[in-house]
Nucleic acid binder design. Structure first.
Length: 115
DNA sequence: GGTCTGACTAGGT
DNA sequence: AACCTAGCCAGAC
């Protein structure tokens, strides 16, 4: 790590936390889901889980499979924005929801192979 | 530059 | 199981 005094003020865009989150989200395969906390860990906690949500919302529309990101209990956190949409998109990929409206993360959770 | 804001989470009651 | 709370931190203004 460079001493902070010598680090460029603006990191290259590929290293910015938002970009890192976006790249990760694009790696989530169809029919699998990741959680905000998991993505936060994967970016080295440079964003908190709530920051991850913000990063995803800030992405250009239709640039990410944003619907594959759910909260840590397998629940949908976007129903204030677009009620029912995320669940419908996931069901369209074969993701099953329990009676409680939650996804079984053991069954559908994304387990990145590397990085 | 300080302040505010979340598509969250873990831990407590 | 259903609340409550503090903590988290990059970006917007």
């Amino acid at each position: 790590m460079l001493p902070s005094r010598r680090r460029p003020k603006t990191a290259p865009s590929t290293d910015r936390p938002f970009e890192r989150v976006w790249r990760l989200v694009r790696r989530i395969p169809r029919g699998r889901v990741a959680t905000y906390g998991q993505l936060s860990d994967l970016v080295g906690r440079r964003l908190t889980p709530i920051g991850v949500g913000w990063a995803i919302r800030a992405a250009p529309e239709d640039s990410l499979p944003w619907h594959r990101v759910v909260n840590g209990r397998g629940g949908i956190s976007t129903d204030n924005e677009s009620p029912g949409l995320q669940r419908a998109l996931l069901e369209g990929e074969g993701v099953r929801f329990g009676k409680d409206g939650r996804i079984d993360l053991d069954r559908h959770g994304w387990k990145p192979r590397q990085r």
